[in-house]
Design a protein around this nucleic acid. Structure first.
Lengths: 343, 343
DNA sequence: TTGAAAGCGCTAACAG
DNA sequence: CTGTTAGCGCTTTCAA
């Protein structure tokens, strides 16, 4: 005897059709409370036939909670943040949260607006990967609004917010050890602007360790403030007078650029020069030579971020933790020992 | 005289504090209706001092609308979908919508679940970039639930849903024209599996046009069903007996792979062989040689998708449109004319 | 085991 | 111009 509904059925429509109350239907939907088996199955039948589905927004409103988590990243064009978000998504949806993610496009102003919007949405929690400029004004807002939040990736020490980052220094130390053990003495470090904390840590970690392992070493640095093309020019110029035996790139496109420049000046990798760089990419294993890289543990970062966020959401006050995930080096063909002697 | 509130202030808290009604505050917040200037500024003052912000979720509930748009893409790891989403985001947020995006991770099952979840959320509209398998079951769900939706990217003809795709055939025709005009006769086409519609169109478009322009041509094809590494093997094997004068890659990583393989067998690009490929990437212009590529108009796709979706949301019934955006070729150094004669 | 009533935070209709 | 009333769709007492 069901009338045709113009709009989607509400819990009351179901209740009416089943000859029960909305409260009972609600209990059945959530699988809790004591409902007579007979009534429960009647409700289920009606739900089925009407195609009823609980409106999570209305449910949240009533409950006074929002099963939403906000994520703000500086960009979505790179595979790093792409896979990070993908991983965060699978963590959070398992917990029943909906993700609202957006890109600040490296704009600090936009970052703040986005956080404000998340705050307006009354999200349960926020995961923020700050913009490069790192003045931390987004984080500031998170704190002043007392939002449950965790900072990831480009993270300055923070005493009020949980943070998850990668142990950049240790990763670079491992690179230094690898190259030193392979007999390299003359290294080129390739990077973009030197301002960001992670770049600085990667640089420092390498230089300190390498100098210690190979006191008679030479470490050159090629940086730029004018993007990839600027870096290419500097690199080109550098290679006109210099022949390091290994290149350590601090970011993905630097590795690609190095590959291209080596080609141009006809230096063979790894025969003439070794190459290792931060960030792994799908094509690296299919390349010739397959490229050795420092891989950031994206899943661990995501998993830690989500679990810290959950802790923060549920336990409110708690001591802040700063998790540092460990990178590992994916050894492939592009790094080779200098002197094939011995053994 | 304001008490300290434990929770965030509601519109009633503001009303009470301002000595007015919630309805009046609501009018002020939305900047509509007639409110005495004096009262309006009092409301604004209180709003300011209490830090009040409208709860868009509650507002939507009451209004019976959801200012949410759902987006489902097959993956977020590639820069294509990353920038597509970034572009969609800036379009939709200008219109006051919040984006809920997620990755189906190339899983058809997951795609359906995600759409179902968007339906549960009562989203105003959905933008779907279907998974590669293209059986269209996600699209089917969209239709059967009568959701406002538009399909993008990998799109089969659809009579019930608006679609936005790229004119793959025409793009490949342009590539054929470029290579033919440059005197090439022996071409290698590089691709992943040949099942997907866009791959097929790209292939067909090129082959037909090229054969017509250069009747005495030879077109080889190297594909694979075993990922990038499989493609590399096939490519390697191919080059042991063949020397085309140009390579046309149907996807981004293919271009990279070709570059690497050319390096391995010491063929110089573009002196010995020309290279052009689908999808543009930041590094291409910084490479040596800078890589000529077919660039998909991401912004146009996003803009069309959003405007078609809005039309669908607001005008409900309307004839379905299938928009095809035009690719352009970014000419750089990797393609060169064969015979530098004449002129 | 069930349902009536209240109300999450907001907006819309309408009477004053 | 303003306030009262009545919900949006749901969950949660709490009395029956």
């Amino acid at each position: 005897m069901s009338r045709v509904l113009l709009h989607r059925p509400s819990i009351h429509d179901v209740a009416k059709e089943a000859g029960l109350s909305a409260a009972t239907v609600s209990k059945v939907m959530r699988g809790i409370g004591n409902v007579r088996a007979e009534n429960a199955s009647r409700v289920n039948a009606v739900v089925e036939s009407m195609g009823y589905r609980v409106d999570p927004v209305a449910a949240d409103l009533r409950r006074g909670t929002r099963r939403i988590i906000g994520v703000v990243v500086p960009e979505l064009e790179s595979s790093f943040f792409g896979s990070l978000i993908t991983s965060i998504e699978s963590q959070t949806e398992r917990l029943g949260y909906t993700l609202v993610m957006s890109s600040s496009r490296e704009s600090e102003t936009r970052e703040k607006e986005l956080i404000q919007r998340l705050q307006d949405l009354r999200v349960a929690g926020t995961i923020l990967a700050p913009v490069r400029s790192e003045t931390g004004s987004g984080a500031q807002l998170l704190k002043s609004q007392q939002m449950s939040a965790v900072l990831i990736d480009r993270v300055a020490d923070d005493r009020q917010l949980d943070t998850v980052s990668v142990d950049n220094r240790m990763a670079s130390i491992k690179v230094a050890q690898l190259l030193a053990a392979s007999g390299h003495r003359h290294i080129l470090i390739l990077g973009l602007d030197k301002k960001s904390t992670s770049t600085r840590l990667r640089c420092e970690g390498f230089v300190n360790e390498f100098r210690q392992l190979q006191p008679s070493c030479r470490i050159d640095e090629v940086f730029t403030r004018t993007g990839l093309n600027g870096l290419r020019e500097n690199l080109s110029h550098y290679f006109s007078d210099n022949r390091p035996t290994a290149i350590f790139s601090l970011f993905l496109n630097g590795t690609l650029l190095a590959l291209s420049e080596l080609r141009r000046i006809d230096l063979h990798c790894p025969d003439d020069i070794s190459l290792i760089g931060f960030d792994d990419s799908e094509w690296m294993q299919a390349m010739h030579p397959a490229v050795t890289s420092v891989v950031q543990p994206v899943n661990e970062i995501a998993q830690q971020a989500v679990s810290l966020l959950m802790r923060r959401i549920h336990s409110g006050q708690a001591d802040t933790v700063a998790h540092e995930a460990t990178c590992h080096i994916e050894i492939r063909e592009s790094v080779r020992a200098l002197n094939q002697t011995a053994r």
